[in-house]
């Protein structure tokens, strides 16, 4: 039960984050909103990281530089998500976002890109994607 509550609140917070970013962007601009929210999040994570000290020495050195800058994508994620929410609403934005996210992850898993363990595609995943796209069509029309 505790796990379900955590997962539920986590999901709610992801949506809340997108909505809050859209709201803040109306007032101070989208890039400004992205910068401020990432900055305060960074500071808080830094404080926690300094307390729990879960970093291994030289850990970052073993990671390819490309992977280290992955966090920078957030700037474009926030910009795109905020602009989408403002033009098509939260529900349609989150729906399309999740479909693209799951589909690309699925393709990467099948192809084994970026050194992830290759997985075989199975029927349920195709049915699932089909249902999600159908859902968006129903949602809109």
């Amino acid at each position: 039960m505790k796990g379900i509550i955590f997962a539920f609140i986590g999901g709610a917070c992801i949506t809340l984050q997108g909505v809050a970013n859209a709201r803040i962007s109306q007032d101070i601009g989208t890039w400004q909103a992205a910068t401020i929210t990432q900055f305060t999040g960074f500071l808080m994570a830094l404080v926690i990281a300094l307390i729990v000290r879960d970093g291994k020495k030289h850990g970052f050195r073993k990671v390819k530089p490309l992977y280290l800058i992955g966090g920078g994508f957030a700037a474009f994620v926030i910009f795109s998500e905020v602009t989408a929410i403002q033009s098509i609403g939260v529900t349609l934005t989150i729906s399309a976002l999740l479909i693209a996210q799951l589909c690309l992850t699925f393709v990467i898993d099948i192809k084994g890109w970026f050194g992830v363990a290759k997985q075989k595609m199975k029927l349920p995943q195709f049915i699932g994607i089909g249902m999600m796209i159908l859902g968006v069509v129903v949602l809109k029309f």
């Binding site: 474009f76 795109s80 399309a96 976002l97 990467i108």
Partner: peptide, 17 residues
């Protein structure tokens, strides 16, 4: 709007990996 949401989703997928 839909295109932007799709781009955001694809970037989230890459970022998570």
């Amino acid at each position: 709007g839909i295109l932007l949401a799709l781009i955001a989703g694809a970037l989230v997928s890459l970022q998570n990996i």
